[in-house]
Design a protein around this nucleic acid. Structure first.
Lengths: 225, 225
DNA sequence: CGCCATGTTGATTTCTATCAAATTGAGTGG
DNA sequence: CCACTCAATTTGATAGAAATCAACATGGCG
């Protein structure tokens, strides 16, 4: 029931009311995916668009020789298919079990043309994604391994904070070390070593499926340095 | 005179006709900048938006310690200020002499709200930028120096091709080595060495303010490898 | 002609990748 | 409940690509 959806405030439907809200709700096909399920591939035609409700999705591109770059993690409230274009620009698969609102791309695009509010919101979300992507370019191009890890952890802490309504010193990391490595332009060994060095230096504690921040100030300094 | 503008087909105004076209033209304040002029800074409030008509602009972010990441080069037809947000997300300055169409951000945003075609086009341009940014993340995170240079050259060749209507084996490089380095996440020495090694290996010839491609096949292979 | 930016080239260091092996831990079946 | 398996992670040793440090060359331009 969209009316009581806990991720509504974060999602594309946040500005909708009345007729527009119900109109979009009528187009919605709720779907779920088990962990590791593929939502779509880079080359496949973009038949659907999605809003993530629960769970985490990794978005990535592959080079012909198998190297992988994760371009983002989609969390609750995030929208997949912002471009409303014929093809997705990347692969998407579920890191955890995922539930999502699925819409036919054509129906959604038609709906967006009818309600400029939706198009405006979509553009707002797209430019926000663009800003994140540019921030990630700085991280990938100009930061060392320790700074990358610190930035990643704090950014994720903030995103979970917005989703849950309160920030926690425990940062959930549903994705594996290899995923973190492929997001930060590192290897799994460097991620592991860096996290464990941070734990040894009392910046954080490694807990099952996450970390707990001990020294936020030092992490902040690393992340912005 | 917008009517005969040679970059119109590439720019935000391409889909406009009749009243909308003249309406936007009335909002336009043509401006020029000499090389090295600052268009705006990362922290300054976003008073204007721009369409580049001639010349090249570099867009970059700075870290507190002076490290720089160039997030893009704006070429004729490109739009600056896609977010229509309160702040620019980056610094912009002129690499060459630049002429541009400048609009008040508020007036432009109002105009976009009036003409959904414009908003749609803006969104299309934003998602295109997003796709480019994601491609750049792959480059920064997962490619070695030689692949980075090859990809950069070919991407620029294609962009000039779209602007001039025909692709040329001579690729104009108005930006300096340091700019290329800061775009690709390398140092100036590595850029210089890699380009000169490519020249030694007969992949290309270095010419004043550019390169001439000799072995497009090998460069293609490097770029997509 | 000489000056200062920009670019090139060489020597060395450093960080991260790579290669290799050991450890942990969740799930399975005896 | 415990041995077993397999994947994920950690840890160690080494190699390698690019950064850094340091001259040196070039080439516009006053």
């Amino acid at each position: 029931m969209c009316r009581h959806c806990e991720t509504r405030a974060l999602s594309v439907c946040s500005p909708l009311e009345g007729e527009a809200f119900y109109g979009l709700q009528r187009l919605n096909h709720p779907v779920t995916f088990p962990a590791r399920a593929v939502l779509f591939n880079q080359d496949s035609p973009a038949r659907h668009v999605y809003t993530i409700v629960h769970g985490v999705v990794r978005l990535y591109k592959l080079l012909p020789d198998g190297r992988r770059q994760i371009v983002g993690f989609a969390l609750p409230g995030d929208f997949l298919g912002l471009a409303l274009a014929d093809g997705y620009g990347f692969c998407a698969d579920a890191v955890t079990a995922v539930s999502a609102c699925r819409f036919s791309r054509d129906h959604f695009a038609e709906f967006a043309d009818q309600y400029p509010t939706v198009l405006r919101r979509l553009h707002e979300m797209a430019t926000h994604e663009l800003a994140l992507a540019q921030q990630q370019m700085v991280l990938l191009g100009r930061r060392d391994a320790e700074e990358k890890i610190a930035s990643f952890l704090l950014a994720l802490q903030q995103r979970w904070g917005r989703i849950h309504g309160k920030t926690s010193v425990t940062i959930d990391l549903p994705m594996g070390r290899q995923d973190i490595a492929d997001f930060l332009g590192l290897t799994i060994e460097t991620v592991s070593r860096t996290l464990n060095r941070m734990a040894r230096d009392r910046l954080l504690v490694i807990v099952p499926d996450g970390v707990r921040v001990l020294d936020a100030a030092k992490l902040d300094k690393l992340a912005s340095a």
